[in-house]
Nucleic acid binder design. Structure first.
Lengths: 238, 238
DNA sequence: TTGACACATTTGTCTATACATTTTAGCTTT
DNA sequence: AAAGCTAAAATGTATAGACAAATGTGTCAA
């Protein structure tokens, strides 16, 4: 008996998917174009309609094509060429390294916007805000500080949450509609008073995430600082 | 004739998907648990196996369950609770503001890793790297500098690309397999010599993206600096 | 010209069946 | 006990047929 590096022929529905993708990649079929019917593919590839249906249905799930019952199958509009970055929760990162994670709510207060915050939140001076400061520990070492300002108008019950059970991020993901939330990320230096307060003068520059709704309301502004010894600060997946 | 708010019964495969999701949500079926076979669902729901197959196949595509041929269907491991940030291309951002975008390739060279780069790329000292420096303009103003190091082992034909047609990011998305690319993001200060070289001493701290494959190989390291006057530096979508 | 209706086209779902592929368990042989 | 074989179980793919639902078109009547 001999060993063969035989590679099985790809499944029929896969061949059809590849064929359609190739037509789109090559530019032969452009955005909005009507592509052949299931019946047509049936004849072209010599397969049953269910096989074609699966191929096109999966392409529709991947937003490569759009299918309209009674009408036909069209090449979908091009997606924004963008890179997706996955910001993992610091708790997961720490656990993945086999260490224990603990977070401490250092501060939770009701505040009024000063002029700088007011302009950031596009609110009037004195608008109600919530302010929280959470320190994340990897074993005994403070590795991250999270300085968060939340628009009270958008998340009125922020103060009454139990942040040992639900992280602020998890809460905001529920309170603010998930669709259409926009972030703006900037690299900034950590606000001096906070670093001083926590005796973490060696904290590295921070990242500021500003969570916005589609309508443009700023929901929250979060500044995150890391301890220089912390290797995994922020990682993502394309 | 009267109008009725009749809602059609959801499709059978949808009912099965919902049933499985509910069992998982309620905690009755936990991570790693073996769930009933297609045959079992066939009897429970009184449908054909193809219908059950479609339901479970779509749940597998959504990474809710994992299916192993010959073995069974299992509840998938919980996904990392993570935030997705969409980094739009600077070109799109500029165009969205109604301005013209232009990029200039300032530098494209073949280089050897010094000790710092070698440790970053986990390669030996002197390993082949490509180094490019691209400046993005909004109308006439330089708003972003992109300082990119690319692992020659992973992208051997990087130098021969025409970056006026294809951006380095677009090229790398094709050259490096899309699945399982990892980023690491850090806030850092801009390397002084580069800021000097471009007479952009007022550049703001930069963001470093390190693109890694699942196997851990560093594909590219990109440092990005922005002009302080540039409002939209980086935006994302949850 | 407009509206109503019938009909063809196209996708959406479902069924019953078949065979292939992979894993697992059990049995047999050494 | 270890190795190898066999069969059962479970998923993967494909088919031919059927009916439902949505869309578009053409015809006919008002």
């Amino acid at each position: 008996m001999h060993i063969e590096a035989e590679q099985r022929a790809p499944a029929a529905f896969q061949r059809i998917k590849e064929h359609v993708l190739e037509k789109i990649r090559s530019g032969e079929w452009k955005q909005g174009d009507l592509i052949p019917t299931e019946e047509a593919f049936t004849k072209t590839f010599g397969v049953s309609r269910m096989t074609v249906n699966r191929a096109l249905r999966e392409l529709a799930a991947d937003q490569i094509v759009v299918r309209i019952q009674g009408s036909g199958t069209f090449v979908a509009q091009e997606k924004f060429q963008a890179t997706l970055v996955e910001i993992k929760s610091i708790a997961d990162e720490v656990k993945a390294r086999g260490h224990t994670h603990r977070s401490e709510l250092q501060l939770l207060e009701r505040a009024r916007a000063n002029d700088q915050l007011a302009s950031e939140f596009d609110a009037s001076e004195g608008a109600a805000l919530f302010h929280s400061l959470i320190v994340h520990f990897e074993d005994k070492t403070p590795i991250q500080v999270e300085d968060r300002w939340v628009n009270a108008k958008v998340a009125p019950d922020y103060m009454s949450q139990d942040f040992s059970r639900l992280t602020p991020n998890e809460y905001l993901m529920r309170a603010a509609p998930l669709q259409g939330v926009l972030y703006r990320i900037e690299a900034e230096m950590p606000p001096a008073p906070i670093g001083k307060m926590l005796e973490m003068s060696t904290m590295e520059p921070c990242l500021v995430l500003r969570r916005k709704t589609y309508s443009g309301d700023l929901v929250a502004s979060v500044a995150v600082m890391w301890h220089p010894g912390s290797k995994y600060q922020f990682s993502g997946k394309l």
